[in-house]
Amino acid sequence: MREIIIISGKGGTGKTSLTGAFAHLAGGQIICDLDVDAPDLHLLLKPSRERQEEFYSGHEAKIDPGKCDGCGVCASLCQFGAIREKGSGYAVDLLRCEGCKVCVAFCPAEAIGFPEKHCGQWYISATRFGPLVHAQLFPGAENSGRLVMVLKQQARELAKAQGADLVLCDGAPGIGCPVISSLSGAHLAVAVTEPTPSGRHDLERVAELCGHFQIPLAVIINKYDLNPEETSRIAGFCRGRSYPVAGRLPHDLSVTEAMVQGLVVTELPETAFSLGLKRAWSRIRELAGLGCQGQAAASL
């Protein structure tokens, strides 16, 4: 079983649209949306939920106003500015609370509770391209990477149970916690970039991150025709670092058209874009060690 993760560094380069199309081309494999903060893959795959679980992670401090005698020890110890005066006592600003328990441990009046933090939900759903493991973090909740690990665990178990040979993951933008977690155990990371100063800059950082965790990286240059010179600079960067460029895709509004219809772009009539996408997918399969078996792309 192989695990492929689609990332980008910069947001909005086309990760999710490409992942949706790859899920179509792969056909019947396990799909996993690891962007638990702002997940969008479900908008293309129209999942029907078969399992729903609550997600708890860490704890948060809550001051009982009846017990608080207003001494202010909590506020003086809190490194996160999460405790504010309220009336004659204090209250916790949950958006700033890190769940470190320091206030709980030092409150002389034992007025601070420490309940588990309900951070979101995760789901296993059926889609027309195969099972989807996905989640929704509550807006504003902490994204520690733990939910990403839970989803990957579920996706791997599902792949094992169903004899699938691929887990295809849509990642989050950035290079922090959730992205680091999503790289763990992956056989191949595919970075989708665009020929803009931000696209290249962010690709370089995410590539360095993959190097840091020793995950093989391939690159797709989306909207390559927006700036041909920048595209060659990105290609040069990839050559220099031996990152294979799995595809160059033109700027094409059919991606948005498909999205509006709740479809992936390979479900629309063929364009230069979708043709390039199919070629990129065969290359990615090869790079991930899946061979050219099945010729999934050709049979569609």
Partner: peptide, 26 residues
Amino acid sequence: PGVSCPAVNAVIDSDVVLLVTEPTPF
């Protein structure tokens, strides 16, 4: 980007929050 802890941290001390979006389903 996003709406979890880093994004909240960035806007929490501001006076106005300006949301930039595009009129696509995502």
